[in-house]
């Protein structure tokens, strides 16, 4: 059985993500530190909380750092805030991001209702492991006020159209990020969770 860990920043609902992973066959632990004796096949950075406190909870309470824990071996799925943390920095906070993807996170344009909340469709731009079997224009659930601005569009595998294009799924080696919430996106979201777990089991 594939065994994954959800890192809990202590800031909201991770129960739904846990349930979704379990329904797709994973064994799930919730961790608050990277100092673990158990080995995991995958790591999830969930999508609830604020940038600075979440970064601090990842950085400050473990002897082992995020990068050493992952060691380019463990697949990581970052959801919403979790994905935003992959980048160098975010306008939401002052702390440095995890910097595993080049680029930054900026606030959504102020002509939109913020937080941006609801279902939008995916424009898939590239083949990717996490979107295997997901149809173009599938509906997914977004709730966010910030968006990623990668330095290169190479890592973007799907966008959402808000009038402007917003990166919806990013993928770089073993790092996968979704701006939306797969655990709240019905059957399509569940398929992405399943795809991620397949990557983890390899």
């Amino acid at each position: 059985m594939v065994s994954v860990a959800i890192f809990d920043y202590g800031a909201g609902n991770i129960f739904s993500l846990k349930t979704s992973l379990e329904k797709n066959g994973a064994n799930v632990d919730i961790i608050t530190s990277f100092d673990q004796t158990k080995k995991y096949d995958g790591l999830l950075l969930p999508g609830v909380g604020n940038f600075d406190p979440a970064i601090r909870s990842i950085r400050d309470y473990s002897a082992l750092g995020f990068h050493d824990f992952v060691k380019e071996k463990i697949p990581v799925l970052g959801i919403c805030l979790g994905m935003e943390m992959f980048f160098k920095q975010s306008q939401e906070g002052k702390e440095k991001g995890l910097d595993v993807m080049n680029g930054e996170v900026i606030i959504l344009p102020n002509n939109m209702k913020i937080p941006h909340m609801g279902w939008n469709s995916l424009e898939i731009t590239k083949e990717s492991k996490i979107l295997e079997g997901v149809e173009n224009n599938s509906w997914v659930y977004f709730v966010h006020s910030y968006r990623a601005k990668p330095e290169s569009s190479d890592i973007i595998v799907a966008n959402a159209d808000y009038g402007i294009k917003v990166p919806a799924v990013v993928e770089d080696k073993l790092f996968f990020g979704t701006q939306f919430h797969p655990e709240k996106s019905g059957k399509v979201g569940s398929l992405m969770i399943k795809n991620f777990l397949r990557v983890c089991s390899k």
């Binding site: 941006h116 909340m117 609801g118 279902w119 939008n120 469709s121 224009n137 509906w139 977004f142 159209d161 808000y162 009038g163």
Partner: peptide, 8 residues
Amino acid sequence: MVLTKRII
């Protein structure tokens, strides 16, 4: 596509 109207 724009953000859809939500039915709750």
